[in-house]
Simulated scan of single mutants.
Amino acid sequence: MTPRELVGIAEVPGGPPLRLFRRGADFMIVLDRNELMSTRMSGSEVALGTMTCERLAGHPNPRLLIGGYGMGFTLRAVLERLGPDARVVVAELVPGIIEWARGPMAAVTDGCLDDPRVVLDIGDVADSIRQASAEFDAIMLDVDNGPDGLTRPANDGIYAAQGLAAAMRALKPGGTLAIWSAAPDPVFARRLSKSGFAVDEVRVRARGNGKGATHIIWFARRP
């Protein structure tokens, strides 16, 4: 078996560090012993982008917010499907993740951060949401493994009632809040509905070939 090589360590504000490993041509981002994401299992992150874009019909020149760059699979999926007048804001809390994207993972990133439609915001997506008012046609959150977080306690606020209310205000009427999760969470799904969203829960596979673990994406539409 090809050995796993430690490529870098990235500090997380208010949380434990992340580690980037490489095994052959594959990359993995790991927290302690938990593999948060890898280039081998990108199917659900791609689905987050593609299925959100499918819900943007009727939104001319859409403006989107992606919370959490990760390995960029959601961003690249969105850019492939949006026209030249779209604008995508990417909020990434961990500067080291962007350094990895521009450094050892540059071949995977494929220049997506340099696309003229992309605005990179090094900061907390919660701040981007709170500061917006009817600004976004879609907000995509792939933060901290979903509502049941691992990396940073402060991320819980994004998924609390107050955070969902802020997301509602940040969306344009008819806009979509799309949330990725590693596992089902019936309590959170009910919270979404109680916050006034029309909710569609979709199960997707971790791998692009339809195999691997089942992940969850909630598509919550502002009326």
Rank of each mutant, 00 (worst) to 15 (best):
A106D: 00
L150E: 12
S195F: 12
E80Q: 14
A126V: 08
E92L: 07
V78R: 01
A189I: 00
I217D: 00
A154C: 11
V30H: 13
P95L: 06
S42H: 12
A161P: 07
G43P: 09
M168W: 13
L64N: 02
R33S: 15
D185K: 13
A213L: 14
P153D: 14
A10L: 12
I29E: 07
G43T: 11
G212L: 07
N145M: 10
V88A: 05
V7A: 00
G68V: 02
A167S: 15
L141Y: 03
I122F: 05
R205W: 09
G157F: 14
V12N: 00
R117D: 05
P184Y: 08
T39H: 03
C112D: 02
G72C: 01
D124W: 11
F219M: 01
K211P: 03
V143N: 07
L113K: 04
P17W: 04
A86L: 05
R117H: 08
A154T: 12
F73L: 02
P3Q: 11
M37I: 12
G8P: 09
E11P: 00
P147N: 07
K211N: 06
R169V: 11
P16K: 06
A101T: 04
D144Y: 12
S133E: 14
E45W: 06
P223M: 04
S38L: 01
E92T: 05
I139H: 00
A126K: 13
E54A: 13
P95R: 06
I179S: 02
G146Q: 05
F197S: 09
I9M: 13
P116K: 03
M105Y: 06
V143G: 11
L177R: 01
A77D: 00
D185P: 06
D110C: 03
V89F: 03
A154F: 11
G72Q: 08
A86W: 10
A165V: 12
D142A: 05
T214I: 11
D200N: 08
D148S: 14
G196Q: 09
D185C: 13
W100C: 02
L48M: 10
V46W: 14
V94H: 03
P84D: 09
E80M: 07
R191H: 02
M140G: 11
L141C: 06
V90I: 02
E80S: 15
R23K: 15
Y69P: 04
A57M: 10
W218S: 06
M71Y: 08
I122E: 13
P184E: 12
D148G: 14
E201I: 15
F21Y: 15
R76N: 07
W180T: 06
A25V: 12
L141H: 05
A161Y: 13
L82E: 09
F188H: 14
R222G: 10
P104Q: 04
L31W: 12
F21I: 07
D137S: 10
G8V: 02
K194G: 03
G43Y: 03
G196F: 03
G111R: 03
H59N: 12
K194P: 01
P173E: 00
F197G: 00
R19H: 15
V143C: 09
P62F: 02
L48H: 04
D142P: 07
E201G: 00
D114I: 01
